[in-house]
Write a protein that binds this DNA or RNA. Structure first.
Length: 674
DNA sequence: GTTAGGG
DNA sequence: CCCTAAC
């Protein structure tokens, strides 16, 4: 590694408000990928309250054209929220370059002593990053050829991140061109040279004594396609697991030569700060750390923290479902232990920022890793790819009636997770070691009741687009599941994540930590629920905004993310305001067909819009008529051209009259017949 | 499965 | 958008 890595640096950061926790980073990335960013405040909110995130980042820049950063993040948090990005692989050459160019960064050690002040909160998180050797990542990086859109939009942010869990595992993070790195000391690094598209908004990586932030925030918004968080499936061609996940062809960076496989490393490790330091040292020296050790520590901590966590419950704010499809993170895992949460400001701030960066509307969804659909970054685009082997979700509080269906449970969890990650995931539920596949079953029917030990309940976080599920890898499992059962999992090829949550009915304080479930045995749901399937589809297509938008959107909507509150059995579809063009089409169809023939209207004008049912059209017409009758000042939402509204009224009047005539006529006919 | 209407 | 009654 030494050879590859020029430099190693570790930055450690306190959990105070300034600090950015890994989670934030993730959120940011996810947000961008998804395009949610702007709207993400909600998600941010959810994330908020968690303070600690310390990120330790090492930056090593390779001078080689491809430079990739590997980052290994280590999170120690009291809260579970930390997530790890075990491996990040990205191709973004640009970023790398920038990094490399920045002398400060390279040489400077961002790392801070582990011992450095820790927040009492235990909220520290460290992110450790190592840079790759240039050549390494390239091959492994996948190009998102298929999803060019994304790339164009927002992908630039991270080219790739790789985490090394132990020595082996690495996370690479490639930053898009204009990443800046600043340190308290005032060393700021910005890469000015990037040609890219991203000019406008550079991602900023800031490291201060206390905190290191990596913000992807400002990117040109328009379509932010996010860098997908996905596994580097390709990286390790050899690995079956991962390979399975990615189907898409990868385009290796030119600059980078063959990249060593990073991804298959075992589980990312979480280290306590101390451990962290040790690791760093060892790394520097070339020693390999034992991941196991760290892991243990981490887990222990986690557990301990659970208890300590503050009990804030997070009411889930209403979360919007962004168009973002899914982001693909092949290995990302998410696990949440307890429900309790500790409020943290850090995340919030960061997250919000990041969210902003990514404006909503990006439909680009990552492809799911699992299937092997992977997106590849185009060579030119600056993207960040990283692979998240596991991360923890801060707190996840679920309050759901017993008669709610599994499907709604999944959605509820999904919503929470989505808010955090920005969507693109689907949730699998594991109960008592078995995967619960029937979404229509109620919790009660499944055996999950309020008085049941929730330990047996687990969730898996899976990428949406997954077409096929692959069995989770052990690594993942072990990573994800703190508690017992690591053995079962075989590798998690895909990004699926296990989320573990305790479900509480009351406040979070009651949270019962849950043990991780072992869901491995059953492979992922081979047959995703319909909505998921739809979602997947959409996500796949969604990047391309244009033609398929409706469909895509629909798909997205299919995965309804609902407020937990509304955790009814039924999942409400997401609201999808009609566009002017849709209204136009509707009006035109109704003019021709009249009211009362909604199915025909649907077929005629919205046959391609799967998400618009004839009932929707009927309802829309109803609202249009209402809208046309009220004063413009009272109207809300996207203004509908008055011309259309006039037509609505005219048409409505006409057909109402026709209908009236029919009515007059019908009775008589009937009567006559009788 | 469609319609129509209230929620 | 949802839910449902009434085709």
């Amino acid at each position: 590694m030494a050879a590859f890595l020029r430099r190693r640096g570790i930055i450690r950061r306190k959990a105070d408000g300034n600090g950015t926790c890994p989670f934030d980073l993730l959120a940011t990335v996810a947000g961008k990928l998804l395009g949610e960013g702007e709207s993400s405040p909600d998600s941010t909110g959810s994330i908020r309250g968690k303070e600690q995130g310390a990120i330790v980042k090492d930056e090593k820049v390779k001078e080689a054209e491809d430079r990739s950063l590997k980052e290994k993040s280590y999170t120690e948090g009291c809260y579970e929220r930390g997530f790890f990005i075990s491996e990040l692989v990205s191709q973004a050459p640009v970023v790398n370059r920038s990094l490399s160019e920045l002398p400060h960064v390279q040489n400077a050690t961002i790392s801070r002593p582990a011992s450095a002040s820790m927040s009492s909160d235990c909220s520290e998180k460290l992110l450790f990053a190592k840079q790759f050797v240039n050549g390494e990542s390239s091959e492994e990086h996948e190009n998102f050829s298929s999803n060019t859109e994304r790339e164009a939009s927002g992908c630039g942010v991270f080219s790739s991140c790789t985490l090394d869990t132990e020595n082996d595992k690495q996370m690479k993070i490639e930053l898009s061109n204009k990443a800046k790195v600043s340190t308290d000391k005032g060393a700021a690094i910005s890469s000015s040279k990037f040609p890219d598209v991203w000019d406008k908004k550079p991602s900023t990586l800031v490291t201060s004594d206390e905190s290191v932030k990596l913000s992807l925030s400002t990117y040109p918004a328009p379509c932010r396609s996010f860098p997908v968080i996905r596994n580097d499936v390709k990286l390790a061609n050899k690995d079956d697991d991962e390979n399975s996940g990615c189907t898409q062809p990868s385009t290796p960076n030119k600059a980078s030569g063959a990249a060593p496989r990073v991804r298959d490393r075992p589980i990312k490790k979480l280290l306590a700060s101390k451990y962290w330091e040790e690791n760093l040292k060892s790394d520097d020296e070339g020693h390999a750390n034992s991941g196991a050790k760290t892991m243990h520590v981490y887990y222990n901590r986690n557990i301990g923290y659970k208890h300590q966590r503050s009990q804030r419950d997070f009411p889930f704010k209403k979360r919007k479902l962004f168009k973002c499809g899914s982001f693909s993170n092949s290995d990302g895992e998410m696990s949440t232990d307890g429900i309790s949460s500790s409020p943290t400001n850090d995340l919030h701030g960061n997250a919000s920022g990041s969210s902003k960066a990514s404006s909503g509307g990006c439909a680009a969804a990552g492809t799911s890793v699992f299937n092997g659909d992977r997106e590849f970054l185009r060579p030119g685009d600056s993207h960040v790819k990283f692979r998240i082997k596991s991360f923890k979700v801060p707190e996840l509080f679920v309050d759901i009636p017993e008669n709610a269906t599994i499907g709604s449970l999944k959605r509820t969890v999904m919503e929470a997770v989505t808010a955090i990650l920005g969507g693109g995931l689907r949730i699998g539920v594991v109960f008592q070691g078995k995967k619960v596949r029937d979404d229509n079953k109620t919790l009660l029917q499944t055996g999950i009741s309020h008085d049941y030990k929730l330990d047996a309940l687990g969730f898996s976080l899976e990428p949406n687009p997954v077409q096929t599920s692959q069995p989770l890898g052990q690594d993942c499992r072990s990573c994800v599941l703190p508690y017992e059962t690591p053995q079962r999992l075989t590798r998690c090829p895909s990004p699926s994540t296990a989320v573990h949550t305790g479900i509480q009915q009351g406040r979070s304080d009651d949270h019962t930590g849950t043990s991780l479930s072992n869901f491995l045995e059953s492979d992922h749901e081979s047959a995703p629920s319909p909505h998921y399937a739809a979602l997947e589809k959409i996500s796949a297509n969604s990047r391309a905004l244009v033609p398929l938008t409706a469909v895509n959107a629909e798909a997205l909507s299919a995965v309804p993310l609902r407020k937990p509150k509304r955790s009814e059995a039924t999942q409400r579809r997401i609201r999808r305001p009609f566009s002017v063009s849709e209204v136009e089409a509707l009006v035109q169809a109704v003019e021709k067909l009249g009211t009362g023939r909604w199915r025909d209207v649907k077929l005629r004008a919205f046959d391609n819009a799967k998400h618009r049912t004839y009932v929707d059209l009927k309802d829309k017409w109803k609202t249009l008529v209402h809208t046309a009758r009220i004063s413009p000042q009272q109207r809300r939402g996207e203004p509908v051209p008055q011309e259309l509204l006039d037509r609505v009224l005219t048409t409505h009047a006409y057909w109402s009259q026709q209908q009236a005539k029919q009515q007059m006529k019908q009775p008589s006919e009937t009567y006559l017949l009788l």
